[in-house]
Design a protein around this nucleic acid. Sequence first.
DNA 1: TCTGGGGTCCTAGGACCC
DNA 2: TCTGGGGTCCTAGGACCC
Length: 382
Amino acid sequence: MPRWILHVDMDAFYASVEELDHPELRGKPVIVAGPEPRGVVATASYAARQFGVRSGMPTTQAKRLCPHGIFLPPRFDRYEEMAQKIRAILSEYTPLVEPVSLDEAFLDLSGSELLYGPPERIAEEIHMRIPKETNLSCSVGVGPNKLVAKLASDAAKPGGLKIVYPEEVQSFLDQLPVEKLWGVGPKTAARLEEKGVRTVYDLRQVPLGLLRSWFGPKGGEALWQLARGLDETPVVPVRESKSLSHEVTYAQDIFAKEKVEAELRRLALLVVDRLRAERLLAQTVQIKVRFADFTTCTRQTKLPEPTDQAMIVAAEAVGLLSRVQIPPGQGVRLLGVGVADLVPATFRPLPLFLDPKLGDVLCEVRQKFGTDALRLGNSSSK
DNA sequence: TCTGGGGTCCTAGGACCC
DNA sequence: TCTGGGGTCCTAGGACCC
């Protein structure tokens, strides 16, 4: 049974929301970016893109390319608010809405025909309603699977609507450079380029056996499928999160070990706050340390039992630090703390030597008085 | 020019067990 | 004393996505 998948992608979403809230900025080079010296661009308006500004680019570089640009810090709560409005519209057509990020979603329209008419009609209606009801522009793509739907919306940008029918898939894909394919990033694209493979058409000429020998059995198989526009991945409305983490890049490198430990404790508390808010327990704690030269190392450890106790997560995070070799003279530019192996907190095992109420009290105080109200011993140094 | 923060998935090696 | 192969679990790193 053929599927109809729709992909909605908001155009320059964060920048467009800022223009919506500050009408005087409309049409100007609006750049939503983390602060200098180490921030990067999250979204650039189309006016800013004319100057070569792209997302992921360091803010300092964006300022050089576009000195008169309007640089704004991201306001995720506001973007989330608008994202919810958009999701509400999408949910009217099918329960099968899979948000990819704040500004993107997949819909499986395969079963919606009886209620809402042919997929073309639904796509046109969504494409018209979102700008009308939110004052934000979007691009819509429709295809027989997620891969094609996403590439279709990309081709429709900005503000367009493109439907790729099954019989058009191959000719639509063939002209595209391989790096447009989902899962083909800079590294894979460079390796393919070395072999003389630039477009999806080129990729389709490479036999499966050869692709397997280049990229391993799984990687080769995946590329072979992508080149043919084959993609069976289902649209999944809600998925369980598999890990939670917080990380920070510091404006200045950290050298003092006590400061590093204090930061790990602070990040651990933030992670635990979210863990509890989502009513989950974690059985793995991980840390991430990035040095001034950008080398990065991660350490993780498995706990004897799942926990949401701040004391335990913080202690494990600090403990993991002893397994990291800090190169002499190198400062730390980023620290991260994460948890994984998450299970629902329906059953809460009691720690043997820690009062379980302590964790609850900690969270309550922090909720009432803010995350700075209470810190774990030794994490108060600024 | 100097590289964010939140994730997912895959690979590879070592330990351990049968 | 030296030698298997397979399976599972754990850990670290890397590619990739938005």
